[in-house]
Design a binder for these strands. Structure first.
Lengths: 108, 108
DNA sequence: GCTGTAGTTCGACGTCCATGGAACAACGGT
DNA sequence: ACCGTTGTTCCATGGACGTCGAACTACAGC
């Protein structure tokens, strides 16, 4: 069976049903993805997929975003052709309080 | 390139030179290993490898302990035939303050 | 409509990894 | 010395994952 076969309003994508510790840890346990999350966290405004400073191809980047989405770490809003990514900081902090601060200490 | 190619005194094993976020996250991002860490954290005394409540073969268990050791999450002391495992809670809390509390909330 | 830009999806490839069976090493007890 | 216990190491296997090229979709502008 598919990993997420929950009845999903097909209009929407990546409804983060419930945050799973293993999934979140696995999502963060990759250098590229952890860097994406870091950039998202250090920015106040949402960032489009193509605007990230990363050294992988676009399709690979898309795959990483999908992983982050399915883990509930980020949410993506489509705005015209752009896909604006937002870190689910509140949800993460509620499920795993202090996790982001632990692995991504914000300077300042 | 190897993930951890830090110059390591070959004489020693699993000296947790410096805790790497990716390595620690990957070590914790496995159901079996996270459960091992949970059991270690809930116990006051060190636990021998064979005394864990887990559903994998002993060689697999040994492999998981090796992963945790190389990530610096645990340290193993040999005592006769037993191998007593200790969670590196202080070191982890210094490197990533609040990480364990975030993903392994202790019922208290 | 056509072109370009932004993301996604589809194979495919190579690597890493979790798992277990079997053999081996280290230690303790009798 | 001989076992039994405890871990480790070796090898193989099946699956998951990161990566990329190429094709495809969706949207904006001309």
């Amino acid at each position: 069976m598919p990993t997420t076969s929950q009845s999903r309003p097909r209009d929407d994508v990546s409804k983060p049903v419930k945050l799973d510790a293993i999934a979140v840890l696995r999502a963060l346990a990759d250098p590229v993805r952890l860097d994406l999350v870091r950039q998202l966290r250090e920015s106040v405004a949402p960032i489009a997929c193509g605007a990230f400073d990363v050294a992988v191809a676009k399709n690979t980047l898309s795959h990483h975003f999908k992983t982050l989405r399915e883990a509930g770490v980020i949410v993506t809003h489509r705005e015209g052709t752009a896909a604006l990514n937002v870190l689910q900081e509140d949800e993460l902090d509620e499920a795993f309080p202090g996790l982001l601060d632990a692995i991504l200490p914000r300077r300042g």
